[in-house]
Amino acid sequence: MTPAPLFRIQDLHVRLRHRGGERTLVREVSLSVRSGQSVGLVGESGSGKSVSIKAAMRLLPRGTRAEGRIAFDGGDVLTLGRRELARYRSREVALIHQDPRAHINPTRTVGAFLTEGVVHTGQMNRAEATERACALMADVGITDAARRLHQYPHQLSGGLLQRVMIVAALLPSPRLIFADEPTTALDVTVQSDVMAILLEQIRERQVSMLFVTHDLDLAAAVTDRLAVMYAGSIVETGPSAEISARPLHPYTAGLLQCRPSTAEVKRLTAIPGRPVAAHEAGTGCSFAPRCPFAVERCRAERPHDRSIEGRTVACHRVEEIADRLEERAS
């Protein structure tokens, strides 16, 4: 029997109070990350990736409610008391946010930002924290670390600031890092550098990672497993290489077709229609309105997860259309 995963979300629902009623943001999400594993959570903007991560950090905004089970190392995250929650957030997991400019207080120095997590949770004293921060800054390619500590965020470029965020995440030596679109807000010229640095650190320290992105190819290249999300639900999960080689859900296939191909010149076919939010989805499959394979049943009945070829796919017609998907993708 394989050991229990380090981190597991089961049947997560996130609902938001809205005009007297409730609105679903995330529906029936399940995924897991094993120790040392990198898992990609992929989907278009608005699909519920950040909301899922926030639920996992217990950082959901007021008026939202998370149901289901989120387990870290066997413990139930959703019911942690104040002290255990502080411990979980400060030592076990770390979150790298999308936009470092917004997520780092502009009125405090880089040094204050870096050390506050470990100092105020009693893990290190300020001197130790500063020393370790300097060493980590050198590791992620920040030169002149001692001087940077006294600078303010506005004096650093976006790429540099995101490296600072990476250092902050690594400082308490967490076991799992949530990286929520860590390069999306950065200048394109530095995105790959920052990504490479993050990966290097993750691998070197054997930290597990839940990597959130809208870029399926990037996710497939840097993770072991993928979970593809659409309208608040996971539509396909499986090993990254297999999913990118042979998508089984029409949405995954659509995402793969949207990319500019490397080898040959292929036409970019964006998925027709616009992505819907979880609360806008009707009773049927939420992808049905945009799906070229949708039939009456797809519009009427929500598909359940089906296990096929070692993957989980939420599609009524997965067996029927597998070959046709492959044709379209090639």
Binding site: L59, S90, A102
Partner: peptide, 11 residues
């Protein structure tokens, strides 16, 4: 957002 960052670090 930076308030959320700090809370998310267990501060």
């Amino acid at each position: 957002e930076y308030v959320m960052t700090a809370r998310g670090r267990g501060v």
